[in-house]
């Protein structure tokens, strides 16, 4: 899932301050799951913005709406009846959502309410951790199912650096050494030999090195 978190209120206030009426759009997909942009967060942010602005004597009208998904045009069309009455849109979705709303409604300023963080998994309730950087050429088959690109601070593909201590990364005790995890897992699977294979220099083009990426399924594409 794509994870995100709300931007500092201060920043958001500056975005909306010039406007009288804005539409705050949530997304019921990833950002709901990571508690950053679902119906509840939309409600909280709307109230928070109103109250914060009120203190400087500004009243603002905020309409709230949460779409099933902000990255599909059909859902974004739902906003049509609401969009005319507002001066600007603030999107509580990942960067995709913000851009898609902006693409569809060209005459309205669209602001992001969230900082899109990473593709992650929930380690436990309330904790999400990075798992994938979308490098476009998955290495997981060689690294025991643990990604050294997303989870090693130095993206080392051939083993841990000298800073790995008791399974933790040198940058923080809170960060697991990805290579320790990989090694433990390879060992548990009896695949120790796999480690000895050198992963050659990576082709970063699928990771975006080749420019903005696109997937086209010829059979599905209209």
């Amino acid at each position: 899932m794509i994870t995100a978190e709300r931007k500092p209120l201060e920043e958001l206030i500056e975005y909306v301050r010039p406007f009288k009426r804005i539409l705050l759009v949530g997304c019921n997909e990833c950002v709901t799951v990571c508690s950053a942009g679902g119906r509840k967060e939309v409600g909280l942010l709307a109230s928070g913005l109103k109250m914060a602005l009120l203190q400087s004597g500004t009243t603002i009208e905020i309409r709230e709406h949460t779409l099933e998904r902000q990255c599909d045009p059909e859902y974004i069309d739902e906003l049509l009846p609401m969009i005319d009455g507002v001066d600007a849109v603030m999107s509580m979705a990942c960067g995709c959502g913000v851009q898609e709303v902006a693409r569809r409604y060209k005459d309205k300023p669209v602001f992001p309410a969230l900082n899109t963080k990473f593709m992650g998994a929930s380690e436990r309730q309330g904790v999400w951790a990075e798992r994938c950087q979308g490098c476009g050429n998955c290495l997981l088959g060689m690294t025991g199912g643990i990604c050294p690109i997303a989870r090693c601070s130095k993206r080392l593909m051939n083993g841990p650096c000298g800073g790995s201590v008791t399974g933790k990364c040198e940058i923080s005790k809170d960060v697991d050494c990805a290579w320790q995890l990989i090694w433990d897992r390879l060992k548990a699977l009896g695949l120790e030999d796999q480690y000895l294979k050198i992963i050659p220099a990576k082709d970063w083009r699928p990771a975006g090195g080749g420019g903005p990426r696109k997937i086209i399924r010829e059979d599905l594409a209209a």
Partner: peptide, 11 residues
Amino acid sequence: VDAIHIIKAFE
């Protein structure tokens, strides 16, 4: 008690 209830009370 939802965070929203608290925020709404202030609002």
